[in-house]
């Protein structure tokens, strides 16, 4: 029993140690984030005023202030996700590089899948329809010999002539 408990304790401690080793993108309070730390978060955000320019590349005063806020939050120990959530709460979902995966926004991600799956399927169906038999391989033989004519029976010849007569009358 004691052995079992020890083993359990050993597992719990090992898992706890492993979890503690998982890097968390947050900063200890009081540490000074570098410009690169700030840009890493800013890259994932878009200012609502300067359309389509990521925050790390935008030179306006407003964006400079935003980067200042990111620096302060990082210094306070906030994680990347917490900072992004802060900006979303302040300015809405449009500050994110992509719509968050929830509710109506799912459509934006599903439509390309439908386009490709549907397009692929339609093309495959089309290909099956358009597919014609392979050309006679005899024509591709290197010796290029003319195939010998098949001898037709009297019966076959009569049938062909009958068909031709019908066609010429019709």
């Amino acid at each position: 029993m004691i052995q079992k408990t020890n083993r359990l304790l050993w597992w719990v401690l090992s898992i706890a140690l492993l979890i503690s080793l998982i890097p968390v993108t947050g900063y200890a309070q009081g540490s000074d984030p570098t410009d690169d730390d700030v840009n890493a978060v800013a890259k994932q955000l878009y200012c609502p005023v300067c359309e389509n320019i990521p925050l790390d590349a935008c030179g306006t005063t407003a964006c400079e202030q935003w980067r200042g806020i990111i620096r302060d939050k990082l210094a306070e120990g906030w994680t990347d996700d917490e900072i992004k959530t802060y900006f979303v709460n302040q300015y809405g979902d449009r500050v994110l590089a992509e719509p968050p995966r929830r509710g109506f926004n799912w459509i934006v991600y599903l439509v390309p899948v439908v386009i490709f799956a549907g397009g692929g399927y339609l093309f495959y169906r089309g290909f099956q329809q358009w597919r014609s038999p392979e050309p006679d391989r005899n024509l591709r033989n290197k010796d290029k010999t003319t195939p010998k004519p098949v001898k037709l029976s009297e019966d076959d010849i009569n049938r062909v002539e009958e068909e031709l007569r019908k066609r010429s009358q019709g």
Partner: peptide
């Protein structure tokens, strides 16, 4: 088709939900 969809989606979202999003 995908790029067309990405370009017009922010307007569709704004029309239907009232919220504008960025497709980046």
């Amino acid at each position: 088709a995908t790029t067309f969809w990405g370009v017009i989606f922010p307007n569709i979202s704004e029309l239907i939900t009232g919220a504008k999003v960025t497709v980046g």
